[in-house]
Each structure stands twice: as C-alpha cells, then as structure tokens.
Amino acid sequence: MSKIHVTTTVNGDEVEFLTDPRETLLDCLRDHLDLTGSKEGCGTGDCGACSVTVDGTLVSSCLMLGVEAEGKKIETIEGMAGKDGELHPLQRKFIEHAALQCGFCTPGFLVASKALLEKNPDPTETEVRYWLAGNLCRCTGYDKIVRAVMDAAAEMRGAA
C-alpha cells in the first residue's frame, strides 16, 4: 500500500513522516518519530496508556489514524517537562507520592491529568477519579495516583 506524507507539529516541533494509511497515530509516534513514551496497552482505546492531546483535546492515539494528524498540534509525554528539563508539577508529584510502580501507564496518566487540570484546576477527588477512569493502572490501586494529582493541582493553584 502506498504511503502518505504527513506534516504535523509534535511538542512544538514541525515533523514529517510517511505513513501507511492503516497505521494509527500511536504507531506513527512510536515507529516513525521515535517517541516511544506513549504506550500501547490495548489498541482499543480502553487503557489510556497512549494518551496524547491533539489541538488541546485528550485522545487515545491508538484510536486515531496517523494521516489524521496532518496540520494538527500534538502534545505527548516527551513534551511535558520544560525545555530545560524542569519537570511539570504533575511529574514531580507522581515521583514524590510513589504514584507509579511499573511505570508503564504513567505517561498516559500524566498526559490525561494535565488535560484535566487545564480544564479544571480545582477538581474534587471524585472528579479526578472519573476523569482518569479511562486510564488503567494495574499496580497501584490508584490511591497514590489520585493523591499526586490532587497535590499537584493544589500546588499549581498556589503558584498561579
């Protein structure tokens, strides 16, 4: 099958790649752009490990085709820390709260949590739990993840 040329913006950088039209955005990020921070846990949009934002909207990149990325602005886990490497408060709080064990679901949780806090800087525990219900974690039982998100939100409100 002939490939399609796609130009898009990932973490602020314009990138180009050739994709088979059957490939997902996740495939393209991982296999064509070497951005392997987004993970495939299910391929069916159930686990959230591939979460990215596309023009500011949180999506499962395994459910979007690579060709649909044309002209979009995509943010992935690799773009979350500052250019100087300074961690986003969420990243810092995940480490401090031991909110990761194996760490495989962590990029997806961080991207999804960031999207939540941009929409709702002061979420209740229940709001955090429902927003993150599309992200599966099998190690932590979610307790420390929810605490880390709440704590990061509090810090970000204080700093703002």
């Binding site: 392997t36 690799e78 961690l87 995940f94 480490i95």
Partner: peptide, 11 residues
C-alpha cells in the same frame, strides 16, 4: 524518590 522515577515520568 525512586532512582528510576525521572525516566518513568518523562517517557
């Protein structure tokens, strides 16, 4: 903080 924390929160 865990030693592998930074690698795991940055992808």
């Amino acid at each position: 903080n865990r030693p592998d924390g930074l690698d795991k929160v940055t992808g």
